[in-house]
Design a protein around this nucleic acid. Structure first.
Length: 204
DNA sequence: CTGTCGATCTACT
DNA sequence: GTAGATCGACAGG
């Protein structure tokens, strides 16, 4: 745990207003932030290196495209900074809601770089390969022991089991964007953001 | 690359 | 009750 004191000295939870903005802006600015999962007294976490933005009702790839039709799309209407977790293809995916209450948009966290509690993540994932620990949306949920019981948490609340903190600032020239992965019908603008050259990004 | 396994929800029998 | 769909992961060739 070589950077432990550095990390702790930097720890500062991002305020609620951060999430009350356009999902693409939030997705971009979440790169380089620290995602921390608290389980009793232990902590697991890492730096966010890949995200995707989703625009509620205007977005055919969004679960809220057809309105408040199920549990997932209802959570999307909650206020910014709320967690949204749902199952796809047998994997939990972790999202953070953006915008004020009533605007169904959010950011999918696709990959993190493991930093805190790596040995516990190895245990949760059942593999030793560090670079494959959290380089995918389903993988990072398993590594951090995230499931639907964590739906509706506030990532800006210090007592929440999942929080997001300031960490490092990513140089604009290192922020790359592309089209989203796995969606059948994407919007014309690229909404996937990732850190150039980071080896924990899921693809490319 | 290709197929299989996967947990949950929806929409029909 | 169960088939079908879904923003993945993995093993195998």
């Amino acid at each position: 745990m070589k950077n432990y004191f550095f990390i702790m000295s930097r720890r500062e939870i991002i305020n609620k207003q951060f999430y009350f903005r356009d999902p693409a802006i939030v997705a971009m600015e979440l790169l380089g932030k620290l995602l921390i999962r608290k389980i009793n007294s232990i902590e697991l976490g890492g730096m966010i290196v890949e995200t995707e933005a989703y625009y509620g009702v205007y977005d055919p790839a969004s679960r809220a495209y057809k309105g408040k039709i199920n549990k997932i799309s209802k959570v999307m209407y909650e206020e910014g900074g709320t967690t949204l977790i749902y199952m796809v293809h047998g994997n939990w995916l972790f999202n953070v809601i953006t915008g004020p209450e009533g605007t169904p948009s959010g950011v999918l966290i696709r990959a993190i770089e493991p930093i805190i509690g790596i040995k516990y993540m190895i245990k949760n994932r059942g593999i030793n390969d560090i670079k494959n620990l959290t380089n995918g949306p389903g993988k990072l949920c398993r590594a951090l022991n995230i499931d639907k019981s964590l739906n509706g948490c506030k990532v800006y609340d210090k007592d929440s089991p999942i929080i997001i903190c300031k960490y490092v600032t990513i140089d604009k020239t290192k922020i790359m964007r592309s089209h989203r992965i796995g969606v059948k019908e994407d919007l014309p603008i690229p909404l996937r953001f990732y850190i150039k050259g980071n080896k924990y990004v899921s693809k490319y």
